[in-house]
Design a protein around this nucleic acid. Sequence first.
DNA 1: CCCATATATGAATATGTGTTCATATACAGA
DNA 2: TCTGTATATGAACACATATTCATATATGGG
Lengths: 116, 116
Amino acid sequence: MTDTCLCKLISTEEIEEIKAALPQQSVIARLAEFFKVFGDPSRLTILYYLSKKELCVADLAALAGMGQSAVSHQLKILRLSRLVKTRKEGTVVYYSLDDEHIQELFDVALQHVEEE
Amino acid sequence: MTDTCLCKLISTEEIEEIKAALPQQSVIARLAEFFKVFGDPSRLTILYYLSKKELCVADLAALAGMGQSAVSHQLKILRLSRLVKTRKEGTVVYYSLDDEHIQELFDVALQHVEEE
DNA sequence: CCCATATATGAATATGTGTTCATATACAGA
DNA sequence: TCTGTATATGAACACATATTCATATATGGG
């Protein structure tokens, strides 16, 4: 880290101003955690299916072509991120989306991806 | 993977219908890659600063409290993801956002994060 | 040309992560 | 209560990834 050029291009006041408006580290960390959840094809697939229909674990595994254990592990992550909710009926656990913003996120991301 | 319960809760037609509407694996992979880029606090911080102002590498490093090399590595990832663009002036390279959807993504994510 | 400086890059390392396997737990039915 | 089934969980492994260090590349000034 050769810090020869320490912000000589913008003024000290400007630096402080921009820095002050930076969201708290904790907020940034939570944002990163949030996005990280979407950064995996398996979870994305699960979320897509759940956006169509409430589904049980076994059905999700069959649809996504994943093992039951793998799906269960990923669902735990989605649960802890408060992106999905569960409904239990006997031994079957039904999962569904618990965030109305997911579709919106998909749309914005698709816009970017589809721009070549 | 004990597949005893293979989609007995939804009909075969429904399965096919839902499966058919699933975006191509390649699209899902690209979506995941896109989100993964946002899933890191350092990159998020860099993107935040760039959303305020065009900045050179050294200034970004100073603002984000990162080493020059680390910033450069992350900027390469952001460049390859087509999220930032560069402008060269002498030996100084200025970075700025190259995607008008980033702010929108931030907003949606913040909404989720701030909901407790 | 040579030097100083801004940025980029490659190797190495430490840490994180997704899947699998084996197993535990929970619940319904006989 | 015993059995079968749906889901959850923990350990282990393979793989990805962010940072650091050292160094390369590029550009402008003298």
